[in-house]
Nucleic acid binder design. Structure first.
Length: 313
RNA sequence: CGCGGGGUAGAGCAAUGGCAGCUCGUCAGGCCCAUAACCUGAAGGUUGGGGGUUCGAAUCCCCUCCCCGCAA
């Protein structure tokens, strides 16, 4: 087991990385250390929340380094002193400077959950769902000077099932990525894999998702709003405004109907469901969450806010 | 002390100093070939808890417990 003598350092932060890390460990490819970002205060109680990968690392007693700023000498020195053979990077959260990428003798592998060169950047999984793609996949590539730009080592496709959400697809892609990684890693470490460059002209890009992206525009077709809802779980979710307050839509359903309402107009279906008209079809609000209140069923919300009918959101 | 909203009947919400109400649900009865429809009636409250101001507090003040949004 020659590869186990190699020093692997794993970089990653959220769930996607955590699934991969755990699978690597369980399959006998335990890294020497985890590098992730710092604990972030979360919620009103402002307690610190560790990255998902850190929790896994602690479970297996892996050493953990947490860096938020990679552009200083002490970080560089720490990493050089580890004398790593290879870095495996999966959703770290920050762009890693060139000087650091040059450290490991066998390069830096990046796990990216899309079929590169499609969907480079920060939100490939959400983009695939948002665009109603029928398939996506994962790519393992050798990192170079540009983000998600390096030559491809291996790729694997995955069908997107109807109703797939970001959390469910994230998990599937992570497990797929881990399998692929385990398969190619020993070969890579023995220099038995050739890379192939990406077709850069076909590249598309995705950006970091912000709260504002979750706002619903009712002039869009209902189908598209459903895809937003699937893509933007668990955060930022999708929301609209009612009486100046944010109304999150926790659960919804498409209502296939020909109607003459204005997009955004609220109405009640014959079987007593609260619904909002879109440019095509409509959305049934099964569960909503008004800012400052508890989440409630659509019908309960209607009982307390009868004036919502005929209003335009 | 990061900013903000809320706690009222089983559920969702009104009532901002003067008789605690609305919609839904529940129960009883009625109507109907029938129904998640409709009609009549009923039950269901220590207004989260404690203290204060007042002739009088869900409402104003102080304390406390709980829930939630923003921010990530």
């Amino acid at each position: 087991m020659q590869h186990q003598k190699k020093k692997i350092i794993f970089w990653g932060t959220p769930n996607f990385a955590a699934f991969i890390l755990e699978k690597l460990i369980s399959q006998g490819y335990c890294p020497q250390a985890l590098i992730t970002t710092s604990d972030k205060p979360v919620g009103k109680e402002k307690f610190l929340n560790s990255p998902a990968t850190k929790k896994i690392a602690q479970k297996y007693n892996l050493p953990v380094w947490q860096f938020d700023n990679l552009k200083n000498e002490s970080v560089l020195k720490t990493l050089v002193d580890l004398k790593p053979d290879i870095f495996i990077i999966a959703a770290y959260g920050l762009i890693i400077p060139q000087e650091i990428l040059k450290i490991p003798v066998q390069g830096c592998l990046n796990v990216h959950p899309s079929l590169l060169p499609r969907y480079r950047g920060a939100s490939p999984i959400q983009a695939a769902i948002l665009n109603n793609d029928k398939k996506t996949g994962t790519t393992i590539m050798l990192m170079d000077e540009k983000v998600d730009h390096g030559p491809i080592i291996s790729q694997k496709k995955l069908k997107i099932k109807p109703g797939e959400t970001t959390p469910s697809l994230t998990k599937k892609l992570a497990l797929l990525s881990a399998d692929l990684l385990i398969k190619i890693l020993p070969l890579w470490l023995e220099n038995k894999i050739k890379t192939r460059p990406q077709k850069h002209k076909k590249a598309t890009f995705t950006r970091q998702i912000k709260k504002i992206h979750g706002q619903i525009f009712w002039y869009k077709p209902a189908q598209q709003i459903i895809q937003m809802w699937r893509a933007y779980q668990p955060w930022p979710g999708i929301y609209t405004f009612f009486k100046g307050k944010m109304l999150k839509i926790i659960d919804l359903e498409i209502l296939k109907i020909k109607h003459s309402f204005v997009p955004g107009q609220v109405f009640l279906t014959p079987d007593k469901n609260l619904a909002v008209a879109c440019s095509k079809n409509a959305i049934i609000l099964k569960k909503v969450h008004l800012e400052g209140k508890n989440p409630v069923k659509g019908i309960d919300f209607f009982n307390g806010h009868r004036e919502i009918i005929k209003q335009i959101l």
